[in-house]
Amino acid sequence: MTGETDRREAAEHLALTLVGAGMQRMGARALAAFLFSEKETLTAGDLAQELGVSAGSVSGAVRMVAQMGLIERIHVAGSRREHFRMRDNAWTTLYSRQHSVVDEVLRAVENGVGAVGPGRAHDRLEYMRDFYTFLLNEAPMLVERFERQRRGEPRS
């Protein structure tokens, strides 16, 4: 196998893994293309060529990955096409955005705790509430520790 073949197979493997985790297929393939690209930016045309699909078929995928906070649109002087690139802090951005979803779940669970009397349902809902509250309280410290580790700072 060539290096290019290995790269494409690894990208497709990652995309299939993301699909297995619940991501839409074309969004997963687009994300993998960004992750495995050596180019600073990609256009819809670049993605279409890389993935072997029409440019129109990648527009929804690009929109989805951008809404997740993983890629961003940037201006490229002299180009009339939309260019996108991976965010430098894509994963911590994604994690932070997922907190809003967890916040909504937590509010709904708290409502459920108040809606049921003592018993199994109350115990299950209370456990879920306590778990998500714990995660939300711990997450900022984990992200900070991760960023310090990435910068090569000693553990405190």
Rank of each mutant, 00 (worst) to 15 (best):
E82F: 08
G3V: 08
R129F: 03
L14T: 06
V105P: 01
T2D: 09
M86E: 01
A108K: 06
T5D: 13
M1R: 06
V76Q: 06
D130E: 12
G20C: 02
E38D: 10
L18V: 06
G20D: 06
R145H: 04
E38Q: 09
M141G: 13
T133D: 04
S59V: 10
G56Y: 09
E104R: 13
E4P: 01
F34M: 07
E126V: 05
D46A: 14
R97G: 01
R97E: 02
W91I: 00
D123P: 03
H13F: 07
F34R: 04
L14P: 07
D123M: 02
Q49D: 12
S59N: 08
E153M: 12
M68Y: 12
D103V: 08
G56R: 07
V58T: 08
S100W: 07
G56S: 14
F134I: 05
R25L: 11
A15I: 06
V113M: 00
D130L: 06
A139H: 09
G119W: 01
R7A: 03
R145P: 01
A48C: 08
A10H: 04
A90G: 12
R8T: 10
V143M: 08
L142Y: 04
I74L: 12
N137I: 12
L51M: 06
L136G: 12
Y132G: 02
Y127K: 09
E4F: 03
M26D: 03
F84M: 06
N89K: 12
T5H: 11
H99L: 10
L135K: 10
S54Q: 09
F36C: 06
L51T: 00
G56C: 06
P154T: 01
R120W: 00
L106R: 01
E50W: 10
G52Y: 12
R80L: 07
A61K: 05
L35V: 03
G69S: 07
V65P: 12
M26N: 11
L42N: 03
L35F: 05
G20K: 07
R29H: 15
E72V: 02
S156A: 12
M141T: 13
M64S: 15
M23V: 13
L31V: 03
R151L: 14
E38L: 09
S37L: 14
L16W: 10
V143A: 14
I71H: 08
V143G: 12
G22I: 02
R151Q: 10
R63M: 11
R97Y: 00
G3P: 00
